[in-house]
Design a protein around this nucleic acid. Structure first.
Lengths: 165, 165
DNA sequence: CCCTATCCCGACCTCGCTGGTAGGATTACC
DNA sequence: GGTAATCCTACCAGCGAGGTCGGGATAGGG
């Protein structure tokens, strides 16, 4: 298992915020209901996103959350990193906080034997990081809109299929 | 953390077997000593590799393990899959055992809401799988030989770079 | 034929982390 | 001031990772 539910819930939360537009705030309660997620747990998750300056909040009644930037500018590497803390493929990788979440292997070099597997894990990590960085929140929102056209909404202007009727 | 120590230890074990050549068998004890790994734990790990037909064993005194194929034919996707069991990036991915360890998302479609994050996790999984499949055991062995030329060995004949000086 | 080195196998144990809850501040609109 | 929301900290149960233990089966050496 690469990622925990933090990543899952967090991304779904961002998607939901994105669907609502950037002008209005959405309460966590509303999201918890519509996505069927535990509210108290969501609170802790959204805190991570706020610390990473991916969302903004308004307190008090009628408050809530909204995206801090347009979905096109939110890449998944930033998101997953904020939610999971780091992206080390292996325990012997230690975080060097070089801003991008890259991470280095540091096995106490056991008397000449270095991490022979370092090459492999590094390749994987770089690959994952690139995949995540290449995916924007906007893409996911678009993907979801295509999947489940909301009641009352048209099934997107031109989803590809020219409407069966 | 993507992978557990099973993957780490297992790969190191294979590298060690590969370094010894395919004709002779090596005892787990020898590997446990040289790599400084717990013997009893290694036994359980090598069992996974044997079940996947990546190594062969000879029982009895002076027995041991050897690679079942040449290192060039052993790709890391097979190895990691054998060791970790599956490669699902997320809990909602369920194994469909289509031989290659690919896996599908199956969130009990919560009343219309599909896994919006499915697109993302799928991309990651495919990427990782490809990275692993592109790396052979031979590469890792070669990499390690370059890193730590054994006493008595030359630092590889012609690695590719014509020596910077 | 026994001894010993090795593979083989299942039960067991400990510890940290994930996923989640509880309960209460604090803030702001009406 | 009531109420709806964000915020914060502590707590807890379950589970899987990582590892141990004990014992079996098997084959070569003396």
């Amino acid at each position: 298992m690469f990622f925990t539910t933090k990543a899952e819930y967090g991304v779904r939360l961002l998607i939901e915020l994105g669907r609502q537009g950037m002008d209005r705030t959405v309460s966590l309660k509303a999201i918890a209901d519509s996505e069927n997620l535990p509210l108290a747990y969501l609170e802790r998750i959204v805190a991570l996103l706020k610390r990473a300056e991916l969302v903004e909040s308004t307190r008090g009644a009628h408050g809530g959350y909204r995206l801090a930037r347009v979905p096109q500018d939110i890449t998944m590497d930033k998101v997953v990193l904020a939610l999971e803390g780091s992206l080390a493929p292996m325990e012997c990788f230690v975080d060097d906080r070089s801003d991008d979440g890259r991470v280095l292997c540091s096995h106490h070099d056991d008397s000449g034997h270095g991490c022979a597997t370092k090459l492999l894990w590094t390749r994987v990590q770089v690959g994952v990081l690139k995949t995540l960085a290449d995916t924007t929140l906007a893409e996911l929102i678009d993907f979801q809109s295509r999947q489940l056209p909301r009641v009352g909404e048209r099934a997107t202007a031109e989803p590809r299929t020219p409407a069966p009727a």
